[in-house]
Design a protein around this nucleic acid. Structure first.
Length: 751
RNA sequence: GCGCGGUUAGCUCAGUUGGUAGAGCGCUUCGUUUACACCGAAGAUGUCGCAGGUUCGAGUCCUGCACCGCGCACCA
């Protein structure tokens, strides 16, 4: 029998640009990313084990970067692997409105081009602009995600601001409100004067800054501050009760002294929160603009007076400085204090941390505001289980629930050491401020009336505060695993096992894995555990798998100012998406930062080409396709490939995708190509027909195993080859000659 | 201050219950014979951060230290 020749399509070298769009079209047409279609076509068993992931929805603010690319690749590998293992696999796509970030970006763009603020435009017009921007941006992100080869089920696509998600947000809000978990109160919050909104504790980023540190004479005391402009209202002087230096002063004692705008009467307060080692061990407090001071004031029932308004302007309490911005007023105030002889010393170069809004905002000014909060220390009843009960029926606080869910192992955080960071965060957790004053986001309905905890002061507000607040974007994100699966609409009518989106909640929740960056462990992972615990009595996912930051070849963070961005799609156009995918995975230990460089990507392009050429060699020698029998000697080689399959499976199951990729890479290149193929050349040249047929069949078998093992990592080149494999291909035992299936994407994983 | 990582070849990093130090890239030399020059063959390069300890044996386990990175808290 004459050897067949590889099909003409096997041009050399492998052309990714030509093959990738064809593969994408093929996959899209098949619709096998939709598990319902797989079941209908008999690709997946009706009662197969479910495997589900929600894609962390990328922000609609920008284009796809290497970080999102890494996330997509990791998840796509897991998804394709489990699909090939015969599971009922669902991977849900979505996009995130990213409220603050998006509004800040659009506002910025408008100001740049039109010199107009959002107040010039008005709420309606701004939202129109924001929506136009997000629609455009969404298309870009979706298109780029598809190009990555992500086998997402787009028929189930969700957007955080669409109607279904809005319904889920309202349902969640009402239930938590009725349970007393959501309350409204006048509390000290993180106020961003630039974006004119509150932000949560997690959104704050501390930036080191150098300032002058001023020492004042406050009656007989020496007090220090970096913020003289806040000191107008200071009429309490606080010290530690055990401080020997001040034992002659008694709690509640009144002292007359000269201060910025004239004589005042100050009151001595003894409080254990004062650090005796810091400065003179005495301080004055500004309760309206400092959390610690606010707490001291509350403990002792002291007056709380605002000094600075929402825009950073001094209030009438500042006397002659009222109406001035704090920035401009500070040097003038210092000057006046100097003239009055109240400054004893100025230390320059005092290094301290300044709180800023990490979402593109300004320097945080603590303010007392009437805001909505989620109580994390209030004991509540958790609901009965809807699917797999983890917290059902128990009475505990949200904080306890979040702690227990992880410590009990119900949710496993990987790598494991991140759970310590998680616990540490929980221990320091305060009530979550969920209301925002930005316009873009889910609005809190006006008909909600909170308990109005009265504090002495009314925060002096600007007129636009009359608008209803919107919700922290992470409130809706916290619902994501179930708001994308039909909750609350289908929560009661779903039928287990039956295909169809209306049964998703019961079929696919809890999700199998949540894969995301470690930087949003608190923002998202913790909030999802909180939300699904209280609302469903369920865990949102069994495992939280965290990945690190993708850095450039020199280990620097990718940033616009450095200009070191490596665009995944540019790289794919140049070297192929398979190469981009492999280079992101190889050498990436879970949870640690990784690096990517063009050289690395080029290396894996060579590998894609290698696979292509191996195939050509195997097909060129593909004699006796239908009747070959593999001799024991050659069977050993096939078994070797099967052993690699076990190794790859083991690594993927333990989320060591890097080791899995490494194992298959080395088998294919160093063993299969370099050794087995080379040896085979001798045999195939020989005259022993049985030996030739056997060896050719074995090579074919090893090729098929290799393609399957590589498919999750490099779906394009492997599928392109699979499409070219001659029909029929070998059937191993039955002797029946037929191609196992049309798409490698749903082929059986080798065992 | 509390906590979490890291330190292995020139560079980037593996090293899974302790058993003779590994890969990729780069470097040197050579080579087109049934795929592949986007290839192949051969080669050079290491006090495994430092100091102790446990052990027959430590890159791996324990203690201390140094340096780098990160998180959280404080910052009057």
């Amino acid at each position: 029998m004459e050897p067949s020749k590889a099909p003409e399509q096997f041009l050399k070298p492998y052309n990714s640009a030509e093959n990738e769009p064809r593969m994408l079209e093929l996959w899209e047409k098949s619709d096998y990313a939709n598990p319902d279609v797989c079941i209908k076509n008999g690709v997946t068993a009706f009662d197969a084990e479910p495997y589900s992931i929600v894609l962390p929805p990328p922000n609609v603010t920008g284009i796809l970067h290497m970080g999102s690319a890494l996330m997509i690749v990791i998840e796509d590998i897991l998804i394709r692997y489990h699909r090939m293992r015969g599971k009922k696999v669902l991977w849900i796509p979505g996009t995130d409105s990213a409220a603050i970030a998006t509004q800040a970006k659009v506002e910025g763009d408008i100001y740049k081009t039109e010199k107009k603020t959002r107040h010039d435009l008005g709420r309606e017009e701004l939202l129109k602009r924001v929506n136009a921007f997000t629609e455009e941006s969404k298309k870009t992100i979706i298109d780029q995600t598809k190009k990555m080869g992500a086998s997402l089920d787009w028929s189930r696509y969700a957007y955080t601001m669409d109607e279904k998600r809005y319904a889920a947000v309202m349902e969640a809000f009402v239930r938590m409100y009725n349970a007393g978990l959501i309350y409204r109160g006048d509390r000290i919050v993180n106020w961003d004067p630039k974006l004119q909104t509150t932000v949560s504790d997690e959104e704050i980023e501390y930036v080191e800054q150098q300032d002058s540190f001023y020492h004042f004479k406050y009656g007989p005391f020496d007090i220090g501050t970096v913020r003289p402009e806040t000191k107008f209202g200071d009429k309490y002087v606080v010290m530690h009760p055990d401080d020997e230096r001040y034992k002659d002063y008694t709690h509640g004692q009144k002292i007359d002294l000269e201060w910025i705008n004239g004589p005042i009467t100050a009151t001595i307060i003894k409080d254990r929160s004062v650090d005796r080692e810091f400065g003179s061990g005495v301080m004055t407090i500004t309760p309206a603009h400092s959390l610690i001071d606010f707490e001291i004031a509350q403990r002792h029932g002291l007056d709380i007076e605002c000094v600075i308004d929402d825009r950073g302007i001094l209030l009438p309490i500042a006397g002659e400085f009222a109406g001035q911005h704090i920035k401009k007023a500070r040097p003038l105030i210092v000057e006046k204090l100097k003239q009055k002889g109240l400054i004893s010393k100025i230390d320059d170069g005092y290094v301290h941390n300044v709180a800023t809004n990490s979402r593109g905002g300004g320097i945080i000014e603590p303010q007392i505001k009437r805001q909505w909060f989620i109580a994390v220390n209030k004991e509540v009843e958790f609901p009965d289980p809807s699917t797999e009960l983890r917290a059902g029926g128990k009475k505990m606080t949200l904080k306890e629930h979040m702690r227990e869910t992880v410590s009990s192992g119900a949710v496993e955080i990987l790598p494991e050491h991140f759970s310590k960071i998680y616990f540490h965060w929980i221990d320091n957790l305060r009530d979550w401020c969920i209301s925002r004053q930005i316009w873009f986001g889910h609005r809190i309905p006006a008909w909600f009336k909170g308990d109005e905890v009265k504090v002495q002061t009314e925060s002096p507000g600007a007129e636009w505060q009359q608008d209803p607040d919107t919700l922290d974007t992470w409130f809706s994100s916290g619902l994501w695993t179930f708001s994308t699966l039909g909750w609350p609409h289908f929560a009661k009518t779903a039928t287990r096992g039956e295909p169809g989106p209306e049964n998703d909640l019961v079929n696919y929740h809890p999700t199998s894995v949540l894969e995301t960056g470690y930087d949003i462990l608190f923002f998202w992972v913790a909030r999802m555990i909180l939300m699904s615990g209280f609302l469903l009595g369920d865990i949102p996912f069994r495992k939280a798998l965290l990945h690190g930051i993708v850095r450039d070849g020199q280990g620097r963070k990718i940033s616009k100012s450095l200009g070191n961005n490596i665009d995944p799609l540019d790289m794919a156009a140049k070297y192929g998406m398979d190469a981009v995918r492999m280079s992101l995975i190889a050498g990436m230990a879970p949870g640690t930062d990784s690096r990517i460089s063009e050289e690395k990507i080029r290396g894996y392009k060579h590998f894609a080409n290698k696979i292509w050429n191996i195939t050509r060699f195997v097909l060129d020698n593909n004699v006796g396709l239908t009747k070959s029998h593999i001799l024991p000697d050659d069977l050993v080689l096939v078994d070797e490939a099967r052993k690699v399959a076990d190794e790859v499976s083991k690594h993927i199951d333990s989320f060591r995708l890097d080791l899995a990729a490494d194992a298959v890479y080395h088998f294919v290149w160093d063993r299969f190509a370099a050794e087995i193929l080379e040896q085979s050349k001798e045999i195939l040249k020989g005259s022993d027909a049985d030996a030739k047929n056997s060896r050719a069949a074995a090579l074919h078998e090893i090729l098929i195993i290799s393609l399957k093992l590589l498919h999750p990592f490099m779906p394009f080149v492997t599928e392109a080859i699979w499409q070219q494999l001659p029909q029929p291909t070998l059937a191993s035992s039955s002797g029946e000659a037929k191609k196992e299936c049309d798409l490698l994407m749903v082929a059986k994983w080798p065992q």
